[in-house]
Amino acid sequence: MMMQLAHRAFPSCLEQEAKALDQVMGQLHQARVATHRFIEVRVGEEEMVIPYRIYDQGYEGVFAHLTETQSILYSCLLTRHHDGHVRQRHLERILSVRKPWVVPFMVQLTGEYVIQILETVEMHLPMLDPALYSRFIRDNQAYFQTMEARMISYWDCYYRRLYKHPSDYFGFRVLAKIRGFSERSESSTP
Rank of each mutant, 00 (worst) to 15 (best):
I115M: 07
E148G: 00
Y143G: 05
A64N: 13
E92M: 11
Y52M: 09
I137V: 15
R42S: 09
A31H: 00
K99V: 06
A18F: 04
H7C: 11
P100K: 08
A20E: 14
S96C: 10
D56K: 01
W101K: 01
R179M: 09
W101L: 02
A149K: 13
I94L: 08
Q23N: 11
Y133D: 02
R184D: 15
D168F: 07
M1R: 05
T146N: 12
R87M: 09
Y59P: 01
P126M: 07
P166W: 09
I115D: 12
N140M: 07
S75H: 14
R138P: 01
L66T: 03
K99M: 12
L125D: 00
K177W: 05
A142Y: 11
V97Y: 07
P11H: 05
Y154L: 03
I54N: 01
I137C: 10
H165I: 06
Q30C: 07
H124T: 01
I117M: 14
I72P: 01
Q141E: 15
M151S: 11
S187Y: 07
Q116W: 07
I178E: 01
L132W: 05
Q108I: 03
H29S: 14
T146Q: 15
L162R: 13
A176M: 08
G84P: 09
Y169N: 04
E68P: 05
A131M: 11
T67Y: 03
L73A: 04
E122K: 11
E60M: 09
T69A: 06
P166Y: 05
D56R: 00
H81M: 05
S182V: 08
D156P: 00
Y59W: 15
Y55D: 01
G171W: 04
S187A: 12
R32K: 13
E92W: 01
M106T: 15
H82F: 13
Y158A: 09
S185Q: 13
K164N: 05
Q30R: 11
L28V: 06
P166E: 14
S96D: 14
F136C: 03
